[in-house]
């Protein structure tokens, strides 16, 4: 295992929402450390708070209590603009529904976040080519999302997430919308990114089979961490 400072360190993390004047406790006293280079799966029933936790890790939602330090940054203390800037350097986010821009080609979709890095056109090109190569979709540069299969779209989305060399890759049910074969392909890809690049990955999934690909599985239930039934793997 990697022995350096954990990339994610959360302590007594809380997230509440207001609904009809009543506070809804979505996450309660979460304590997790995730090490650099770790591949973690986040499991739990629908509504247990998996997406909420992932969004907190990504700095697109703010904690209601407790502490959350990601890649050396105390998420609760950063301004919205600072979070956005930090995200552009440190976080790659993969969505269940890909969220590619339909009017941009695969290449342009992957290039988009690089405009935040102040690179030259040639530097961007090299990075995009490398990312598309890594997701094995280099022959689909000029295809638009509608000309790609779901599995290919997700590969392009993964290329977009890794093109900025983020320290943390977050994925919310990345195979949730794919058939078995495409899902296996995407999981092979994530496993390879983890293995070959030492990429830290936190992935939400419903599917135990998919979760098996991770090194560690964290279970959430009603906003709390739980020991899985028949634990101690």
């Amino acid at each position: 295992m990697v022995t350096t400072e954990p990339i994610i360190r959360c302590h007594s993390l809380e997230k509440h929402y207001e609904r009809g004047g009543e506070p809804v406790r979505v996450l309660e006293s979460i304590d997790i450390d995730i090490a650099r280079g770790e591949f973690v799966a986040l499991m739990g029933p629908s509504g247990s708070g998996k997406t909420t936790l992932l969004n907190l890790f990504a700095g697109i939602d703010t904690p209601s209590g407790g502490s959350l330090v990601v890649d050396g940054h105390d998420i609760a203390t950063l301004s919205r603009a600072a979070l956005a800037h930090w995200r552009s350097r440190s976080v790659g986010y993969i969505f269940q529904l890909y969220h590619l821009v339909p009017v941009l080609t695969a290449y342009e979709n992957v290039e988009l976040p690089l405009f935040l890095h102040g690179l030259s056109g040639a530097q961007r090109h090299a990075r995009v080519a490398e990312a598309l190569e890594a997701v094995q979709i280099a022959d689909r540069y000029s295809h638009y999302p509608r000309q790609l299969s779901g599995g290919q779209e997700q590969r392009v989305a993964i290329a977009r997430a890794i093109v900025g060399n983020p320290s943390l890759l977050l994925a919310d049910e990345p195979t949730g919308d794919l058939d078995r074969a495409a899902a296996t392909g995407v999981m092979d890809l994530l496993a390879r990114l983890h293995r070959e690049r030492g990429q830290t990955i936190v992935m939400v999934t419903h599917d135990p089979h998919t979760a098996e690909r991770a090194q560690r599985i964290i279970h959430l239930e009603k906003g709390r961490l739980v020991e899985p039934l028949g634990a101690a793997r």
């Binding site: 342009e108 988009l112 102040g118």
Partner: peptide, 21 residues
């Protein structure tokens, strides 16, 4: 590290989008 808070979205994003519908 440059501050990305003022980095604009490239013009081609807007230009492509007008043809979206």
């Amino acid at each position: 590290m440059s501050d990305s808070s003022f980095t604009p979205i490239p013009l081609f994003y807007a230009a492509r989008n007008i043809g979206r519908s």
